[in-house]
Design a protein around this nucleic acid. Structure first.
Lengths: 206, 206
DNA sequence: CCCGGATTGGCAGGAAGCTGCCACCTGGCA
DNA sequence: TGCCAGGTGGCAGCTTCCTGCCAATCCGGG
């Protein structure tokens, strides 16, 4: 299955009837429930249903992401954050799994699985990831500070200047600037600056 | 104007009638003539018309890009490469200019200008960029070698490992690996690895 | 007013990355 | 065979980046 649109059209009814939704996502700009193209994204009604979501810390780096997560939480979703890379996955009622594959020029492609053994395997992986991840609340405070610096930080990193000039531009010590960068990279789960650049772009922060 | 689709729908007839097309682009996956979504992109018929295009070297980093450029050239387009950053721009018959703006979640937005003074100013900027850029042929040979290494190189850079391990993985000396990286960065017009990562992502190389 | 926690930023030492230089292969080509 | 051109990779010296340590500073609560 290719492209968010097709996925959305063909699985909307499944989301409507599912009572247990488990979802792992890297960015907000994916999946049926949070399609780009609309300012305020449609959020499913979660009355009497269980929804669990795992995100990477990078969604906490911009205000819009935090806002969206808060909204989801108010609607009753359980949200956790993991620092380890995770494949985009949805599991519905432990009976249906949707896995995202590579992003191609014409959009991302998805695979929908319903074979019980496969879905069970994927479910157990999700459960493990869920157990090893941390509740949103714990991360919110930690990232509030970092989020303040992030926009300028990203601009400077993207400009390709040295840390020295970047620090001066921000009016901050070299040590502090590098601390910011290190924190940002941790939030992106990156261990090199190249990786950080690619992930920042991927996360839509640039 | 928002999104490639709208731009395409509303300007297709202009492209059809224009006899002098000047175009500066950063990637192949933009603009009406090369919309994503189709494997083989529709290429306009250039019979008896003048088409000039300026690209960044990064389009030469994957085989598909080279292929596309060759095709365009065979159709009669003049293609040049510039190493300096350039804003995406189209000028039709010196009378109409289309400028691309920021990429937003719902697609890129475009501005269409027809005021003669503005279009003249933009045209002269394009002419300057055209004069200072180099013909495709000169770059093709230079990048043929680099292109061979690029995929593995990008994988390794994206993995976040050190140059040392990356070099070992590639079965190549540290000095050579770093030479490759330096060449890649030059091709991307990047002066820091963070920038390189972001641009590689942007150029669709990851 | 003082205290404790948080943020800052200098310093130092080390790790990683960058690049000019040059010697060494290897594969054409006369 | 001799020569040339281009890719390779070690080395050295340099820059940039990373981080633990610690003192200085700021700020809200008691």
């Amino acid at each position: 299955m290719r492209g968010e649109r097709e996925l959305f059209d063909r699985t909307a009814h499944l989301f409507g009837s599912a009572t247990d939704i488990a979802c792992a996502a890297n960015t907000l700009y994916t999946w049926a429930a949070s399609r780009p193209g609309t300012g305020v994204r449609p959020v499913p009604d979660l009355q009497g249903r269980r929804a669990r979501k795992i995100y990477l810390p990078s969604v906490l780096l911009n205000a819009a992401g935090v806002e969206h997560l808060r909204l989801l939480r108010e609607l009753g979703a359980q949200i956790r954050i993991t620092e380890r890379e995770i494949n985009e996955t949805i599991i519905l009622d432990g009976r249906l799994a949707i896995l995202a594959a590579e992003v191609t020029p014409d959009g991302r492609s998805y695979t929908v699985l319903s074979r019980p053994d496969l879905v069970n395997g994927i479910s157990s992986l999700f459960e493990a990831a869920w157990r090893s991840s941390t509740d949103l609340a714990a991360f919110e405070t930690r990232y509030a500070e970092l989020r303040r610096h992030t926009p300028r930080l990203l601009d400077l990193l993207l400009s390709g200047c040295t840390d020295e000039t970047a620090a001066r531009t921000m009016g901050v010590g070299l040590r502090t600037y590098r601390r910011y960068v290190a924190e940002l990279m941790a939030a992106l789960g990156a261990t090199s600056r190249f990786q950080a650049g690619a992930r920042a772009k991927e996360a839509g922060l640039l």
